[in-house]
Design a protein around this nucleic acid. Structure first.
Lengths: 223, 223
DNA sequence: ACCTGAACACCGTTCAAGT
DNA sequence: ACCTGAACACCGTTCAAGT
């Protein structure tokens, strides 16, 4: 198509094909997987040397980011439609549900999402950024509509998504409560909690009733 | 003290001391820790051979269980006092808060708690059992008082505690949102959500508004 | 009885050597 | 330019050999 010198095209296409094979092998190994698969094993399954894998993807995070990139983009594009929905709080809840499903699909993505850094040196770089943006849009819209409490920021919300995704992917391991159902119930509890104004009984947060807090030291022996 | 043959007492006390040194070394390495510490490293710090560590604790879970045992027992005993508190829902919320703090204290405990098995072959055996019991007591009391929704079982609740504890311990790693604060906000959102009756708009759970679900395939390519 | 540490099969990661 | 795979410093776990 383009005017690239003829002699380096075969090489480049070969490299590109290797890259694709690595991604495919990783996807197959990690989707719905109960346990981690080593990068060595992924390279083996892709039929390339381990060095080639590291050349294309300097870290596991980089590989994961690439792995979910297309799907993340599509999901976020679709989420923009949620911005038009008549019920901002319901739209946010729906988005959180979809996002958890997406993140929990591939082994290890939840952890990478949590450890994303703005400069892209760790964690999901690209995917993290667009997830941040979409979530922020839906959150502030719901807050401006007065439907969701104001003491929540987008970082807390995405941390929560990471944690619930981690739960879902962890529950694929036995023995563990195997239910996607649990996460669903938790999400619906959360959705209800989001709608409420922050509870105006702060005393109930740290102590309830007659418990004598002095008898037990705080759980951090150090610090 | 007892009538044990004299010649094997020194051995046994030596063994017991080794055991204690392993636990102490592990506690020191794991409390508030941002990253995992290998069992080899723990044995090294305790001044024992790696074989000795495995003799006393056949798995990392077994070591963790022993590590938090005393504190777990004390915490659960104190939680029994919460059963007398006048506000069952607030008591439950308070317990969940304390439990997350406790579980998040030592690196790896959240995962072990999630993977506990009733037969004790994996995960936190003893600690898991008493945590289950205490949590169940507080939950059913709040449910019987009509203060907490009925579609929640104790397993879901402890899965949630595991996930939030995982979040807290993960946030000690950089780069990650470092805030204990986030988990606190999430917990208070949850506490509010628990009090509400299950939302009676099930349509809002899976779809909100005008989004066209057909354009994007579900995130599980396999299955 | 109890302890030790070399040995084994892994892991992520690097890098000299090849085409 | 790109790929390979031996090499390195680890990991959890086992087990023959010691006292």
């Amino acid at each position: 198509m383009t005017d690239v010198a003829a002699e380096d095209r075969p090489m480049r296409s070969h490299a590109r094909r290797n890259r694709e094979r690595i991604i495919d092998a990783a996807r197959e190994a990690l989707v719905g997987s109960a346990t981690d698969t080593s990068l060595n094993e992924i390279a083996r399954r892709a039929g390339v040397g381990i060095g080639t894998l590291f050349r294309h993807f300097p870290s596991r995070d980089a590989l994961l980011d690439e792995l979910i990139r297309d799907h993340t983009t599509a999901l976020c594009a679709e989420a923009m439609l949620l911005l038009e929905s008549p019920d901002p709080a319901a739209a946010l809840a729906c988005w959180l549900r979809r996002l958890v499903s997406h993140v929990a699909t591939y082994r290890g993505v939840s952890t990478s999402l949590l450890h994303r850094s703005p400069d892209g040196r760790t964690g999901l770089y690209r995917s993290g950024r667009v997830i941040d943006e979409v979530t922020r849009s839906l959150l502030v819209r719901a807050q401006r509509a007065g439907q969701v409490r104001d003491d929540l920021d987008v970082t807390a919300l995405i941390s929560l998504v990471s944690a619930l995704s981690w739960l879902r992917e962890s529950c694929r391991q036995e023995p563990a409560p195997d239910d996607t159902e649990h996460v669903d119930v938790i999400l619906s509890v959360l959705a209800d909690g989001l709608r409420a104004a922050p509870s105006d009984q702060p005393d109930a947060r740290d102590r309830a009733g007659t418990a004598d807090q002095g008898t037990i030291s705080p759980p951090h022996p150090i610090g």
